[in-house]
Structure formats: C-alpha cells, structure tokens
Design a protein around this nucleic acid. Structure first.
Lengths: 142, 142
DNA sequence: GCAAAGTGCTAACTATTGCTAGCACACTGG
DNA sequence: CCAGTGTGCTAGCAATAGTTAGCACTTTGC
C-alpha cells in the first residue's frame, strides 16, 4: 500500500513530522495533546492527508522543539537558500540571550563572511576546503 | 481550547502584515499575486478575519522577504524566548552563503557569548547594554 | 483468561479557509 | 465629462481543516 501522495510537500512534511515524533519517544496522542489538536487529525497530517494551518504547525513545532522554519525546509516546502535573506539576522536579533552589542558584533562577523564569499565568487578560492556555494545539490549533512 | 486567544493574535498578525506590506510599497493585489493568493483573501487576513494556512503564511512571508518565524513572533503568536533554543544555530546552519568552516566559527562566537552571559547572570551584571559602553572592548573575535 | 489502558486509524460531521464575481471609491488622461 | 485603471472591500460558494465518536489491535497486569 503506497501512500496516496496528495501533494509532495505535505507528504514530506508528514514523514519528517513522524520521524521527529518517534525520535522524541512521543505517542501520537501525546504530541497531539501538547500541540492542542486531536489525535486523528495529527495522524492524518503525518500521513499527508491534511495540511495543518499555520497555528497548528507552529504548535507542533514548538512541542517537538524544532523551528517551524526548519520544518518547512525539511519538508521541502521551503528551499534552504531560497529562504529569507536575513534569516540569520532575524534569528540573532530576536535572540534574548544576547546583548545588543553582542548581536551587533555577531552580525558584523556574519556580514564580513558573506562579503568574503562574494569576493571569492569572482576569483576562485584557494584554500577553502569545501565549496559549499550555490550551485551544488542540497546534500543535507544533518 | 485555545480559540479565545486566537482572535487577538490574528488581529496582531494582520496589523503586522499590513505594516510590512505598506512599508514595501506593495498594493494588496500585488502582494496577493506574489504570494499566490486572491486579493480579497489577503485583505481579510490583514483585517484579522481569516487565519492563513501554513503554506499561505509561508508564501506571504517569502514575498515580504521576512521570516515566517519572525512573523509569528511579531504577531504575538510565538514569544521570542519561548521559541526554539537553537534558532540561531538553525538559521546559520541552513545559510547557503556560508562555508561549513564559517558556520562553525560563527556558532563558536555565538556560544561563547551565551556562555559569557550565563556567567554574568551568576555574578552581578557589569555589562549594561547602554550605560557602560565606553572603555571596554568585549567584542574581539579576531 | 481477560479487563484496562495504550497504540494508531476510519467515519461522519461542523467550522473555516480560500476561491470567483462584483461593488464603491479615487485617480488618471483623452 | 467620462472610459480606463488603480485601490480595498462584500457576498456567496466550494474545498478542506479540524472536530467527536468509535473501531481494531497490542501490551500490561491482576
């Protein structure tokens, strides 16, 4: 019995969700409870029969201690590079564990890295061990 | 259920959305087009009459060049600190504009900042973001 | 052996999303 | 003055998200 494959995206999302849930040793009902949805519904989401709303997805992600953004990416709804340009910026700025000054210097380093890579794009890099720029397939190293 | 609170949060989301849209000099129809939804629907979302699905919200966020996570936070649906602990980590790791080595060093700096603040939490805080700024050079990631 | 409680799933229903068609208003230029 | 186009909004409908009730199966323990 192959899955119905309603849409690719939701199927992938369901798979990833189930993977995360079982990895967290949570039963369907437990996660459903934590996420504030009914168990049948969560079941249907995992099997790709339903697409959760924004709020539900957020609740699930929270219960699983993962980022909703990451959930999107892993589910193939959002491609990693196509994501928001300032994703790192936003994450840093909204981090409550950093002082404003620390945020600033962290973003400075980040920006310098990006500028560096931009320059490398013009002239080929000489000592970089990995060429993980745009262009190669997203072989997920996680 | 959680329904009671929803009505407020959706309103906040709509406000924030509209704020971002007007700031981007986009008309309702333009944004709707880019997000792949109908204009009346986007209108209703902005006025808090409808709650967008995960996919729609993602599309809107993408069109506005903002993070969906950030959208949640700013809309008050997700509190900043209550978010995933590794939000910065995830953002950095999924950034395709950085090499693996750069990601690592960036996260090293980040971790050291967090450790530093952790230590400050125990002993009296000497690092006030605004007042005690002159003289010290705490940010030296060379 | 079998109640009790756990697992996930099906079915039927209600509530909500997200659509198309079309209205009212403001601004342009012919 | 009024066709043409822009803005956002309302009405009504089709699709589906999310619900409660309940089934079949497995494990626990009395």
């Amino acid at each position: 019995m192959v899955k119905a494959k309603v849409t690719e995206t939701v199927g992938a999302l369901g798979d990833y969700l189930k993977e995360q849930r079982t990895q967290s040793r949570l039963s369907l009902r437990q996660l459903a409870e934590q996420a504030g949805v009914s168990n049948p519904y969560l079941s249907q989401i995992e099997r790709g029969l339903r697409k959760p709303s924004a709020e539900v997805l957020q609740q699930i992600a929270k219960a699983l201690r993962i980022s909703a953004e990451q959930l999107y990416i892993r589910a193939g709804i959002l491609s990693p590079d196509d994501g928001v340009g300032g994703s790192v910026e936003l994450a840093v700025l909204s981090d409550t564990g950093l002082t404003e000054r620390q945020k600033q210097s962290l973003l400075d380093v980040y920006a310098s890295f990006l500028a560096l890579n931009e320059a490398d794009a013009a002239s080929p890099p000489v000592d970089l061990p990995e060429s993980s720029s745009q262009g190669d397939a997203p072989t997920d190293p996680s």
